[in-house]
Simulated scan of single mutants.
Amino acid sequence: MASHAAALLAISLLVLWTSPAQGGANDAEDCCLSVALHPIPGNIVRAFRYLHIQDGCRVPAVVFTTKRGRKLCAPPDQPWVDRIIRRLQKKAAKNKRHSS
């Protein structure tokens, strides 16, 4: 029960507000204002995308989309972020092989 409550607390702390990119591109993209400092449980993530400074964002980030559709901002230089991305890429490659 305590671990479930801790996970819910961590997830709720990780849901960060986003705002449109300022300047740069005409097609404003959502940017992260900050990133999560604590690991996101990999089993709740279904997709990811990168946000770069050169895209007009002030904070570089990886945006994870959860199975419930929430967007969570994470720092791209953390090992736990790399592990989640590798797992998602491996799963996508496996699904692609099975659908061919």
Rank of each mutant, 00 (worst) to 15 (best):
R70C: 08
L13V: 01
Q78T: 02
D55F: 02
I40T: 13
I11T: 07
V15Y: 13
V63Y: 09
I40D: 03
Y50H: 10
N43Q: 09
H38N: 05
C57M: 06
I11L: 15
W17F: 05
L37M: 11
L14Y: 10
V81R: 06
L72K: 05
N26Y: 00
K91M: 03
I40P: 08
C32V: 02
G42F: 02
S12W: 01
T18D: 09
G69R: 14
G23E: 12
V81W: 07
K90N: 02
T65R: 14
G42H: 10
A6L: 11
R46T: 12
P20R: 07
Q54H: 07
A28S: 11
P39V: 01
S3W: 12
I11A: 06
I53R: 11
A47D: 15
W80P: 03
D55G: 04
D82I: 01
G56D: 05
A28K: 14
A47P: 03
C32L: 06
V35R: 00
A10G: 13
R46I: 13
L33T: 04
R68N: 09
K94V: 00
S19A: 12
V15M: 08
A61I: 09
K96G: 01
A6N: 05
R70H: 15
I53A: 10
E29H: 01
A2W: 08
K90E: 08
K96Q: 03
D27W: 00
N95M: 10
T18M: 15
S12I: 00
P39Y: 02
R83N: 01
V62W: 00
L13P: 00
R97M: 01
C32T: 07
G42V: 05
C73N: 06
K94Y: 02
P20E: 12
D27A: 03
A28F: 01
W80V: 07
L14S: 14
D30M: 12
V45I: 13
A47M: 07
T66F: 13
D55K: 04
F48M: 02
D27C: 04
V35E: 06
L37A: 08
R83Q: 08
R83K: 13
R97A: 05
A74V: 08
P41A: 10
